[in-house]
């Protein structure tokens, strides 16, 4: 299972992760080795086996729609790298 540089770049793009040329090559090698080691996963017969996403019996957790104490706008914004007028502030996303 050898990954190509193109695949590494595609994955990094999906993950919104900038990588240096050196990182791309290192991850290409390491991920290829790791995925190669995981090839055994294709062995067991899973045709009639349902997937497990959580070990708990799936159920919806409902609660009454009541007002409860929550973070103040000041507290919610206190960790923001940039905030203005009670909002998180980011670079323009439209030209």
């Amino acid at each position: 299972m050898a990954l190509t540089l193109n695949e590494v770049e595609h994955i990094a793009d999906l993950a919104r992760l900038e990588l240096t040329a050196e990182e791309k090559e290192r991850f290409r090698e390491q991920l290829s080795t790791i995925l190669g080691h995981f090839a055994s996963l294709q062995q067991p017969d899973t045709s009639d086996v349902p997937p497990t996403a959580t070990v708990l019996p799936l159920r919806n957790i409902m609660r009454k729609d009541e007002v409860r104490p929550s973070l103040s706008p000041e507290d919610a914004l206190a960790n923001a790298p940039d905030a203005s007028g009670g909002c998180f502030r980011v670079r323009a996303i439209l030209e």
Binding site: L41, Q42, P44, T46, V49, P50, P51, T52, A53
Partner: peptide, 9 residues
């Protein structure tokens, strides 16, 4: 998905 199925096993 395959990992989740083997997780069941």
């Amino acid at each position: 998905l395959r990992a989740q199925r083997v997780r069941t096993l």
